[in-house]
Design a protein around this nucleic acid. Sequence first.
DNA 1: GTCTATATTTCGATAGAC
DNA 2: GTCTATCGAAATATAGAC
Lengths: 190, 190
Amino acid sequence: MSTSERLIESTRELLWERGYVGTSPKAILERAGAGQGSMYHHFKGKPDLALAAIRRTAEELRAAAGAVLDGPGSPYERIEAYLRRERDVLRGCPVGRLTMDPDVVASDELRAPVDQTLDWLRERIAGIVEEGKERGEFAPSLDGEEVAAAVVATVQGGYVLARASGSPAAFDAGVRGLLSLLAPRGHDAG
Amino acid sequence: MSTSERLIESTRELLWERGYVGTSPKAILERAGAGQGSMYHHFKGKPDLALAAIRRTAEELRAAAGAVLDGPGSPYERIEAYLRRERDVLRGCPVGRLTMDPDVVASDELRAPVDQTLDWLRERIAGIVEEGKERGEFAPSLDGEEVAAAVVATVQGGYVLARASGSPAAFDAGVRGLLSLLAPRGHDAG
DNA sequence: GTCTATATTTCGATAGAC
DNA sequence: GTCTATCGAAATATAGAC
């Protein structure tokens, strides 16, 4: 792996673990096994490197979520698959956590990939809900965009509850709670 | 207001705006209009002052949420009142945001008030859901703790969506989505 | 391209005068 | 109780050798 690649990957890890404010160039360089010069040769500085890292993380999240949402099954089953997909719950969401970083939110450039990813996710799920309404799986009174926002929020908030308690249990409880509310009549939400 | 009080209040504001890692003693002192000596006279250091600030913020949140949850109305209406209560959405949750702070999560002492507050909130709402089941307002198949986790997660995640997009709209959408799923038959979720 | 110096500012805390 | 002075370490970046 090239030095530039190692810098991006180290930054991705640290942004996930400690956020933007909590990640220093020094820590990135140590993890990447590189010197100061390399970082400032390949990137303009911390914000520029962070942008590259955030963009890549956002792309990966889209690919992973997209794979589940495009999977087999009814609309309910695909949303369930998204909610139950394998996660390192206590690590939190590598994209969503950035919204609590003051320097990320203050920068349109750093915030953009975060915003776009969560927006894409909501629209993707909203379409699946609408599909479920057409099929009669979901009540016609439901609004796709609203339910999608609730789905994504439950996941993002589930991370908060899990990290607060130090256990994934609260995340799982929230997911089960939402699924029990969303479940088609007669469906066992498990 | 005493110097000690000003220090705590300034810390509360900064923890809300920038989190623990992003808040320096220097910034606290400037906002409080105090010198270094005052802070280290009243508190052992940054973690000690942050603990006092977090505990007070946690207490305030409990009081505010408790007032709404103990208010008038049916179980559904009380949960709706909680979800729709006035919020400075783009500022996020002053308690929940701390779960994204690595130094807070790493400290049992700093994490405790966060955990206890969110746990209290979930249990409080779980009781209301159970009450609604007894009244026939909610389906007997629902699990109070699970639905409560979904309710609290929707709020916490709603902040994430709102801050990502720079607008409270996504928070409101998530709340409406959850309410539409939770609504008693025939009820207009508005 | 990568490295080691170096610079400036801030962090978090202590010392000691008043 | 509050202030200023000071400290050693870290944050972020630049300079310049190789």
